[in-house]
């Protein structure tokens, strides 16, 4: 059982702050590191993996500093996001080399290849592998020394649904065995399916932490904005503002549309068509105007 601790950690590159005063503890089980692209997830994972020094604060594994400490790799397995590996080797040669660097041998390599179900292609050159196969061999290389901590940077990128499911099963199993598994993703559904615990990172800041139900609720309970066009905008606006699910409606004359701010997402989505029918108003356009992941996340930061 291992615990990663990040304490008041910041990391900047020149003038750019990639990670801003983050504190979190990652214990056994599967944890998802969720955030939009460029939020600082990779920077955080690189600091936890010992590939980047924190500019400020400390990153430790069971109390031991990770930066400039090769001995932590006896406990940590790393699955990098980047594709490059030793393409001129076969899958088996690659995993055996990784085992040897841990002072292990062919037996452990074979076991790791079996775990990721890559034995059937182990004698092919890595350069001939598909993205999913590469990902699995990378997994095997990270698992070869039976680590108690597994760090994965965007492991599902470019995987097909079946490979995705297999990897999720594998990671779930690792988590259930009491390993500390941390993976990053910018896709909420991925994290929701796999992680029991979620850490949300937005623009370098630690935006939320907890189980996925709480995070999900935070995300759906936020005010939603809609752009609505109808056969009678003003009548519709009058009818909608009477209901407590809306907080504000603007008649945008230039656009010829209504801008509606809803505070109760569930209730509003039921209300809108009902009100329209009752008043014989035709709805021409109903579009959420801030559904991008970034806006969802930035709401979390403000919350």
């Amino acid at each position: 059982m291992s615990t990663l601790r990040i304490d008041n950690t910041s990391r900047w590159f020149g003038n750019v702050v990639a990670v801003n005063d983050v504190t979190m503890t990652i214990g056994p089980g599967v944890t998802g590191l969720l955030g939009p692209n460029g939020a600082g997830k990779s920077t955080l994972i690189n600091m936890m993996g010992g590939f980047l020094a924190p500019s400020n604060g400390t990153v430790t594994l069971d109390g031991a500093q990770i930066w400039r400490n090769e001995s932590v790799y006896r406990q940590i397995g790393v699955v990098p996001e980047r594709e490059a590996m030793y393409d001129f080797l076969t899958g088996r040669e690659f995993v055996v080399a990784n085992a040897e660097l841990h002072g292990l041998g062919a037996k452990e390599a074979q076991r790791a290849l079996a775990t990721v179900e890559m034995e059937y292609a182990q004698d092919r050159k890595v350069s001939t592998y598909s993205k999913g196969m590469r990902q699995r061999v990378k997994m095997a290389s990270a698992l070869v020394h039976d680590p108690s901590v597994l760090l994965l940077d965007e492991p599902f990128n470019g995987m097909d649904p079946r490979q995705r499911m297999q990897l999720m099963d594998l990671l779930r199993r690792m988590g259930a065995e009491g390993r500390t598994v941390l993976f990053s993703s910018h896709i909420l559904e991925e994290v929701e399916q796999l992680a029991s615990h979620i850490e949300v990172i937005v623009a370098g800041r630690h935006a939320a932490s907890g189980d996925f139900r709480r995070i999900r609720r935070l995300m759906t309970d936020r005010p939603h904005r809609y752009l609505v066009r109808s056969s009678d905008d003003r009548a519709l606006a009058a009818a909608l503002i009477a209901d407590p699910s809306t907080a504000g409606i603007e008649v945008d004359l230039a656009e010829g549309a209504l801008r509606i701010q809803a505070v109760d997402f569930g209730r509003f989505t039921e209300l809108l068509p009902k009100v329209a029918r009752e008043h014989s108003i035709r709805l021409l356009t109903v579009s959420p105007s801030d559904e991008s992941l970034e806006s969802v996340f930035s709401y979390l930061v403000a919350a």
Partner: peptide, 15 residues
């Protein structure tokens, strides 16, 4: 350049 050195660095081997 291609980042594959990470597989050497992420090992209990002195740099």
């Amino acid at each position: 350049d291609d980042g594959s050195i990470v597989y050497l660095l992420a090992k209990p081997v002195k740099r």
